[in-house]
Each structure stands twice: as structure tokens, then as C-alpha cells.
Simulated scan of single mutants.
Amino acid sequence: MEIRIAITGASGFVGTNLRAFLNDERIHFTSITRRKTRRLKFEKNIVSDLGQKDLPGRLRGCAALVHLIGIGAQTKDADYQSVNVDLTKKAVSLCKKSGIKKIIYVSGLGVGNNTTFGYFLSKLKAEEEIKKSGLDYTILRASYVIGRDDPLTKNLRKQARSGSILIPGDGAYRLQPILVQDVAKVILACVTNKKLSKKTVDLVGPQTVSFARFARRFARNENVKIRKVSLQRAYFTALNRPDDAAFGLDDLNIMVGDFTGNHKRLERLCGFRLNSTGLLPL
């Protein structure tokens, strides 16, 4: 396919899988990372924090920019405003200076005008920056993206190795995970399919599962116990003893939010069916 795609945050979980997918599809792409990565055959790698003056010139000819930079937890060195919002502003500016007409942004499932907590508010502000930019865009509001070494799976496997898996509250709140391989296909469709122009779409898989059921998949070994704690206790630990917490404050906010979306609309716009996450090997 005679297009070139630019990717920010290309060394993260989604970015790494997207790079592999585009390379397999023989699509040329430029990855922007904070440190040099092993270059794939159809890849050009640029080490940048999005602030270099020569960066726009090096991206000329790209049809779209996939903006994957973001954080789901704040630290003293990286907060939601500086990363999720300010770097999105830089990505928008980069598109305009380099002549890139389309931006694809991975936001969060549950983001909306009624949102109240920091992570979602930062994602909402980033979405608004993109919508008012004048660029073509697709905003993908993602549920949990799963695959080999995804953050949620790594967390649950780590807990399983310790002998127990924690379920905050009753665990009845739902997830609608999507396979990372499908995410890569969706992102490419956002570049090539005009049906996804200026759309905000739920990035969700075809299966809805309770957190308790999902977590139990990692406790098949009889020596791994399921341990339920009250939401009050889970939040108390996350707030007061974060180093001991199985889930951070915003992890809990997202999990217990019980956010689900419309996978049929996603399939209809993309023109292909999504895979069942039940096929994912543990």
C-alpha cells in the first residue's frame, strides 16, 4: 500500500504491535520514540520528544499520524496535563507543520462530557484539541487492549505468581477487551477508510466479561487463590500504600466504571469482524 504512517509512542505495547503489523503488511511507517529501537524492514525510526525543530520536515509525505503517547497514572515527573493533553497539542501542531492531514488518537472507553476524574478529563481535553484542530481525525475510545504482555495481563500474572489474585468488590463490573491485533487492523482502517473520517468510536471487542470471570482465568492452578476485598479497602490501600496496592487509584476508577461499548458499530465502519478474545492463549 503506497502510504506512509507516522506513529508517536511507538515503543509502547500498542505501538510495538502496530509496528509489527504494518511491517508484515509491507506498509512504510515512521516511528517516533524517546530512545532508539530495533528498526524493522519498512520502518524509519526517529528519536524525539516531539519538540525538535527539524521533525516536521522529516515527516513530510506521511498520510496520517497515530498518536499513542499517554499515561494512565501520574507521577511527580509526568502528570496527565503535561502528557495526555500537552503532548496531544504538540502532535496536532506537528501534523499541521508537516502537512499530515489525518490524526488517529487512542482515548479511553468511558470518556465523555460527564466525566469527573483526572485521567478521563485529560483524555477528554485531548479529544477536544483534536476536534477543534481542523484536521481529519478518528478518536478511538479504547477498552482494555489485550495480547502478549499487555499491562492488565501482566498484573494478573504477577499476582498469580504470588499465590493469590485480588478482586476489588464483587468483581461484577464488566470489561470489553479487544485483541491488540484487531486494534492494529482498526488503526490501519482509520487511515484508509473514509467511513472513519471525523468519527469518535468505541474501540471494544465482541465479548463482554465480568472482571471476576476474567481474573479467574489466571487462577487455574489450584495453588492460586482468589481473594476478594471491599472497594473501600482497595481504594484505601491504593491511596495510602500505593507500593503495596494490586491496583492504583485510576486503575480502580476505570475497572469499576463498568464501561462497555458498541463493537458492531466498529465492525460496520471498519468493514471486518473482530476476533473473540476467548481465543487468546494464557
Rank of each mutant, 00 (worst) to 15 (best):
D150W: 10
D150M: 09
P151D: 04
P151R: 13
L152R: 10
L152W: 13
K154G: 01
L156T: 11
L156M: 11
L156A: 06
S162F: 13
S164T: 11
L166C: 10
L166H: 05
I167D: 07
P168F: 05
P168E: 09
A172H: 14
L175S: 04
Q176D: 10
Q176A: 07
P177L: 13
V180P: 13
D182V: 06
A184H: 04
A184S: 15
A189Y: 00
V191D: 00
T192Y: 00
K194H: 10
D202Y: 08
F211D: 08
A212Y: 11
A212Q: 12
A212D: 14
R213T: 15
R213Y: 10
A215S: 13
R216Y: 07
R220D: 06
V224W: 11
K225T: 08
I226A: 07
R227G: 00
S230E: 07
R233V: 15
F236M: 11
L239D: 00
R241H: 12
P242H: 01
P242E: 04
D243G: 01
D244R: 10
A246M: 03
A246R: 02
F247Q: 06
D250W: 11
D250H: 13
D251R: 03
D251H: 15
L252F: 04
N253L: 12
M255F: 15
V256Q: 13
D258W: 12
F259C: 02
K264C: 00
R265K: 14
G271D: 00
N275V: 04
S276G: 04
T277F: 15
G278R: 14
G278D: 14
